[in-house]
Design a protein around this nucleic acid. Structure first.
Lengths: 220, 220
DNA sequence: ACCTGAACACCGTTCAAGT
DNA sequence: ACCTGAACACCGTTCAAGT
């Protein structure tokens, strides 16, 4: 019985990569709370402790998930383009990744990603700001501000951040309970607050920031 | 032995409020991970299950924490002021709350707050946008964009969001490991990326957004 | 080198028993 | 009405035993 190619690898050997992928599938299918070492092991048909031969602990597994998603982020760029279109492309790439892994995105945002893959988006952002004519210190600040906006918008949209979220179980009845004297604007804008298109909202804020950058003084 | 005022209430009766306060103290002192029902009970010198007479479950306790912090947010406002100064005051009030409860802020952001207290900041934001001359739909979008920025900046600063965070254990050595050919801008801006003042960064993005709003067409 | 079961020290929560 | 201990069904992880 030679171990030739005719023998199908029914049970591929356990690797860190397979464990990370199983974790991602599990989270996307059953939600973040369903992620336990035991559940991942069951997903792979393996004993819990086998995982620890390839992953030091759960926190490191979560970092692996973050790493995988960030590494998979498509960062298309054409340096011949206008800096504004390049900036839009970068931010939308981040948003696309967030939409590809809606359940994982909270894990991705809250765990550090190893060098150098974690620095790729930063390098791109700084390159674009440089091309736009901003000095180094300003470029760094711009990168942080854009990132802060993209992060916050995404977390709010996903529902990871619930603060000021305007979608209670039954919006209409709850808004009706508000005292119009104390909340005149909220009650007047009840429909605008409950019905909204996330894409348009995201774009609105993004364009706000880009137009502000465009008005900033810069060299050349 | 009449229960007069001379008899000090050595052990004040358990209430939801006291439980929430104990949870907040515990989190601020020992971090978010230290928050367990058992630990809160120990904090109050009470059996674990006693908590359940006043709080249905842990998730509700966390919502109570969020509720308490948001309710305590000072929202000073003078409607006679310029809308720009009013907007700045509102955003900085949010930031101040985040700094008063640095360890709790993640809980606050990720748990829904009951009506009507959760709507107070929204009402304020919409009132200011209205005063600035924006129509209802635009006001809602502005509120969301400003909130997204404030949220993202805060979570990044606190370290709750680690993505693109530029503070590895030993920055200098790690940046040195990066290939300058692949990361020319990151390596060139190593010092700007590692040394930064959070206040100035926050203000930079905030003023960016406000100046963009100022340039937007509006009535009156 | 890799896998595994038993065990430990934790969780949140149900239940039945107390007052 | 409020408190409580025991118990249940979970966790992540250590350890010693297997191959």
């Amino acid at each position: 019985m030679p171990k030739s190619a005719s023998e199908p690898a029914v049970r591929p050997s356990l690797t860190r990569e397979r464990i990370v992928l199983a974790a991602i599938e599990l989270v996307e299918r059953e939600g973040e709370d369903a992620l336990s070492m035991r559940a991942v092991a069951a997903e792979l048909g393996v004993a819990v402790m086998s995982l620890y031969n390839h992953v030091p602990n759960k926190a490191d597994l979560l970092s692996g998930v973050a790493q995988h998603v960030v590494a998979g982020m498509g960062l298309p760029d054409d340096s011949a383009d206008d800096w504004k279109t390049r900036a839009r492309a970068l931010i939308w790439a981040f948003r696309r990744a967030a939409h590809d892994y809606p359940e994982c995105i909270n894990i991705v945002l809250t765990h550090s990603v190893d060098f150098p893959v974690g620095m790729r988006p930063a390098e791109r952002a700084l390159a674009i700001a440089d091309a736009a004519g901003f000095d180094g210190a300003t470029s760094v600040r711009i990168m942080r501000a854009m990132l802060a906006y993209a992060l916050g918008a995404q977390m709010r949209e996903i529902g990871a951040v619930k603060m000021l979220n305007d979608l209670p179980p039954d919006p209409s009845t709850l808004f009706a309970q508000l005292d119009p004297a104390e909340f005149p604007h909220v009650t007047a804008l009840a429909t605008e607050l409950t019905e909204h298109d996330p894409e348009t909202d995201f774009e609105f804020g993004l364009e706000l920031l880009i137009s502000a950058l465009d008005a900033l003084p810069r060299r050349s």
